[in-house]
């Protein structure tokens, strides 16, 4: 059974439709990457999948639970199954990193304080932020904030982890370390990753399958493994993306 199932999803803002009749499935334990050029609706799709963006039509299942049209109790149950890392980190500015990461444990676990602190420190070390526990988000660089946000998203060991542009703004070494971490977590803990990213290196490192969205077609224009799409692109847009070619300027 797929861990995420999307059927004929249509999302937009008012009269402006961003995505139309989008359907796909994400299998358990896979690294699923959503890619596409700027403004094609990647983040909108991600926000729909996590229930932040109301859908105009279509259905979304997280496991066996349908997210679209779920009542509050079911919605809360579904939300606990995934963690989310937002593009800008979205850390709470008044809490230090340890408190930020510990917060979901305080709300959704019965662990004692020592265990919660221990696990939060582990997650911070996992993303390379050991020693920064007491620092406030404002004292960190953008990349460090992002890594702390990943630690917070992972702290409950969710089934699915949604990451919005995790590598953007990171140096290549940190970015590669993050990719390695994603692979280790997927393998050891069976976490499914849904990642929105532009970074080709990350795509090839972590993606077992990708979908590519297109702004003009308002939907998916390619599905497959990164290597297959690179080697046999089904259309020009996919070819341009994987070969990093500039689109021709139309007069």
């Amino acid at each position: 059974m797929p861990v995420i199932r999307v059927e004929d999803l249509t999302v937009g803002y008012g009269d402006r439709v961003i995505l139309e009749n989008v359907s796909f499935e994400v299998r358990r334990g896979e690294g699923f990457v959503v890619l596409g050029t700027s403004g094609c609706g990647k983040t909108t799709l991600l926000r729909s999948l996590i229930g932040l963006e109301p859908v105009q039509a279509g259905r979304i299942w997280i496991g066996e639970d349908e997210l679209t049209g779920a009542d509050d109790a079911r919605r809360l149950r579904i939300l606990r199954r995934f963690g989310v890392m937002f593009q800008n980190g979205a850390l709470f500015g008044s809490l230090n990193l340890l408190e930020n990461v510990r917060l979901p444990l305080e709300e959704f676990s019965t662990l004692n304080r020592e265990a919660m602190d221990f696990i939060a420190r582990m997650k911070l070390e996992m993303v390379g932020l050991k020693g920064a526990e007491e620092r406030l988000p404002a004292e960190l660089s953008g990349g460090m904030q992002k890594r702390a946000a990943i630690a917070r998203a992972m702290v409950l060991d969710p089934e699915i982890l949604f990451l919005d542009e995790p590598s953007a703004g990171l140096d290549p070494v940190t970015s590669a370390g993050l990719d390695r971490l994603i692979l280790d977590l997927a393998e050891a803990l069976g976490i499914t990753f849904v990642v929105v990213t532009h970074e080709l290196a990350s795509i090839f490192a972590i993606a077992s399958r990708v979908i590519m969205l297109d702004r003009e077609q308002r939907g998916i224009i390619a599905t497959g493994t990164p290597a297959a799409l690179r080697d046999a692109p089904p259309n020009d847009k996919v070819r341009q993306f994987f070969r990093r070619e500039a689109a021709e300027v139309k007069r």
Partner: peptide, 23 residues
């Protein structure tokens, strides 16, 4: 321990985790 779990565990340096977190 499975190889994947072992690799994950190896990411952590046990030093620094020994002292109890001060309340």
């Amino acid at each position: 321990l499975s190889e994947a779990h072992r690799r994950l565990l190896a990411r952590f340096d046990p030093k620094g985790y020994a002292e109890r977190v001060a309340v």
